[in-house]
Design a protein around this nucleic acid. Structure first.
Lengths: 226, 226
DNA sequence: ATCCGCCCTGAACGAAATCTGAATATCGAG
DNA sequence: CTCGATATTCAGATTTCGTTCAGGGCGGAT
């Protein structure tokens, strides 16, 4: 899952960035409205955290532009306390949730998870596919109840596949959602990670669809074969 | 599904080409308006992605010429940001949708799918023909609920037949829509693929119409027969 | 600040699936 | 029955994928 933070307070944005990375997200940070708008327009984020009080272009305008351009990613807006009018304007512009500053990072994480979940059509933070369980809340995975040790990128890959289980995901899409902006993809890192994941969760869980990409499937459901 | 990209920025066109191929389209790329116009006039595309700012001949003129010549394929135009006048001119010239640069690839894909669907007179990503289901989004096919394992070319072939079910499709048309431009068809690859498909989805689903081509039909419905 | 260890990247190489083109067999119309 | 059209089969050729490994970066520990 890849997230954009648009926040002008350097302390806050840095701290948020760290927390989100710890949780296993790929994170980009923009420091003003213009940069934020550009990134949101350019990169395929799974969610955006948007401060409404921003230099250069204010948050509501940024959000309006995105929505006018057809961007559908969920947006969580941050408002100063008691700025009720701003909040309303944010919702009118197409926000999906809000949080008033100051807030507890735990709450931000919870709301963000809820947004990501909803966008992918799930109702819980944990996804189970035939004995494999992915816990997005704790950033952990289990096979038949046994915890699996995954590195951060391995988890991101698995989580993304789990969120879209059954669908074929192209290498391109995986790269775009697992890495943040500055990454040259001219290597075979995805293949390498898929290989490692397979060794950890079992070979038959990730199917490769030649020429298209990968798909997470339930090895128990025997009707996946042939 | 065969798509033409007319785009002068080599980075962008290369990247777009890759993404679209990932999604299973056959893709041709033209680097300027003249080449683009020629290809669009000559080859039977299912959709075109057309940049408006082009060398030699500009995008709007290209589009006007195509429409004047009776070309009906859907055209998605790309405009630089905030070039509202260009956008309007594009629509007047007969564009079906637009996207402002920069954009993220998933949005382009979604809009392209929507255009292709609309053009084929369908409203969802999945097509069902008597127990056979083709899911263009997930790049999967099912027979009576059982997933069928298809290679990417087999899937393209099936998808095209499903999009035009009931119609007789000539070998030539199939080749043109499944492969990109530089392909010598002096072989019998289509027969080979049809054979493989039949083995996988059932012999009675693809009817061969002697001297004309193939047709996908519903084996349950009796009124398909000539 | 420095060292150590884990993880990531990129490349190389081998393996596997798939595609192509041709040869051969079968079918259907007249 | 004959001929052209379509089916089937198959072996290279080709593309795509899996695996391994070394170098290096980053973070944590000391």
């Amino acid at each position: 899952m890849r997230v954009l933070i648009v926040e002008d307070d350097p302390d806050l944005s840095r701290q948020l960035g760290e927390v989100l990375k710890d949780m296993g997200y790929a994170v980009d940070v923009a420091n003003d409205g213009e940069e934020g708008h550009f990134l949101g327009d350019t990169e395929p984020y799974d969610a955006v955290v948007l401060d409404l009080g921003l230099p250069v272009i204010d948050g509501v305008s940024v959000l309006q532009k995105w929505r006018a351009d057809g961007k559908t990613f969920p947006v969580l807006i941050l408002t100063a306390r008691d700025q009720w009018s701003e909040k309303v304007a944010g919702f009118d512009a197409g926000a999906d949730d809000y949080l008033t500053k100051p807030f507890h990072t735990e709450e931000l994480l919870a709301r963000l998870r809820a947004l990501l979940r909803r966008a992918a059509g799930h109702t819980t933070d944990t996804i189970e596919v035939g004995g494999l369980m992915v816990d997005n809340r704790a950033a952990r995975a289990f096979v038949d109840g046994m915890p699996i040790k995954l590195t951060s990128h391995e988890f991101r890959l698995l989580s993304y596949l789990a969120m879209h289980r059954g669908r074929v995901i192209s290498r391109t899409e995986l790269v775009e959602h697992i890495y943040d902006q500055d990454f040259d993809r001219d290597s075979n890192t995805i293949e390498v990670f898929v290989g490692r994941l397979r060794r950890k969760i079992g070979t038959d869980r990730i199917e490769t669809v030649r020429g298209l990409g990968y798909r997470l499937l339930d090895p128990a459901a025997e009707n996946n074969k042939k």
